[in-house]
Structure formats: C-alpha cells, structure tokens
C-alpha cells in the first residue's frame, strides 16, 4: 500500500508553523495524509460508517499533540501511531460491549474454505474463493483481541514491514515478531474451533 509523501521541506515548514501556533498550516498536512489515515482506520475497525468521524478525532488529537512531535520518526509514522492508538482504544471499548458469536457461513463458502485448506491451488484463489476466505479472515479478525487485531492488520492487510510496525507501535522488532507469531497462533486456533463447531 503506497501513499505518496508531500515534499519533505514543505512538510517540515507546515509542522514548524503548527508548532508555533499557526493553525492554518495544519490543513495541508490533513490533505496530504487523510487518505493514508482513512485506510489504516478502515482496515483496523472495519466499520465504513464510523471511519470519517474517527479520522476527524485522530486529526484533532494529532493537532493538540503536535508540539510533542520531535522528528525522531517521520511525520507519517508519528501520525500512524496516533491513529493506531486511537483505534486501539476504540476497539477495546467496542470489544467490551459486544458479544462475539461464531457466525454462520453459507455452505458454499465453507466448502471453498475447506477445499483451499486441504489442497491450495497453484494459481491462487479465484474471486469466489477470495470472497469466502476473505470473509472468514475478516470475521476471525473481528473476534481477535484489540492487540492481535492491530498487529495482524498492520502486517497482513496494511502490508507494513516489521520495522515499520515496531516504529508505529513503539516496540522492539523482536517484540513485534513474538506478538505477530502469537497472534497468528491464536487466529489458527480460532479457525480450528470454527471448523470443529460446524
């Protein structure tokens, strides 16, 4: 997932102006990064109707905290960190208030998943299979803890490298690797539970 960055010198100037109190300088930063933030928020929370409100809140938070931005990481990474932390809080609130069920899939969907699990095709998934396994993965992700959901989304859906994830989450690379592995294990276990329950 590639998003083009604004010119670094212009960006630095906008940030400097924001930090000295020039609110108007925040607008070009919002324009430059809104799509990236929309993407990460949507992939994390998976609720199309809530994305815009959440992104607004994230930018409000980012503006109020911009004084603490010290160029140690790129502005995009810093903004991603604000976004991920905000989504993490949102997911934890959501998770505590909802009951998670094992859902029902169509028979055809189940059949496609089984077929792919036991004999994956050489050429990859066709569109129907993609839909089925994508649907399954999405539902399993929704059942995962906020921590697992974040790290799996950043790695597998947002396609971030382990180094990028460690910067965004402010964790050591080794910690990210361990957490990724554990999150994957838990997801596989949940998949097995679903299979047993059918």
């Amino acid at each position: 997932m590639v998003h083009s960055r604004p010119d670094p010198s212009k960006e630095a100037e906008w940030i400097r102006l924001c930090q000295s109190g020039e609110k108007e300088a925040f607008a070009p930063l919002v324009d430059a990064y809104q799509r990236r933030v929309f993407s990460i928020v949507y992939h994390l929370i998976r609720r199309r109707n809530d994305v815009e409100d959440i992104v607004q809140e994230i930018f409000m938070k980012a503006f109020s905290a911009i004084g603490s931005y010290n160029s140690q990481s790129s502005f995009g990474t810093w903004l991603n960190r604000v976004a991920v932390n905000h989504c993490y809080d949102y997911l934890r609130r959501q998770r505590s208030s909802k009951v998670t069920y094992f859902w029902e899939m169509t028979e055809e969907g189940q059949r496609q998943i089984e077929a792919h699990t036991h004999s994956p095709k050489e050429g990859g998934l066709d569109s129907e299979e993609k839909l089925a396994v994508g649907d399954l993965a999405g539902k399993l992700l929704a059942r995962a803890s906020a921590e697992d959901r974040m790290i799996l989304t950043l790695k597998e859906i947002e396609d971030r490298s382990v180094d990028e994830i460690s910067e965004i989450l402010n964790l050591k690379v080794s910690t990210v690797k361990v957490r990724l592995h554990r999150a994957r294990k838990r997801m596989v276990k949940d998949f097995e539970k679903w299979q047993e329950g059918r």
Binding site: H43, I113, H116, P120, A137
Partner: peptide
C-alpha cells in the same frame, strides 16, 4: 496449511 488459508484471506481483504 491453516495459516496459509487465513493469510490468503487477510491478503484478500
């Protein structure tokens, strides 16, 4: 095998 199925699903997302 199971992980690769799930990973395909996540990538499809």
């Amino acid at each position: 095998r199971k992980w690769e199925t799930l990973q395909s699903g996540l990538v499809a997302m």
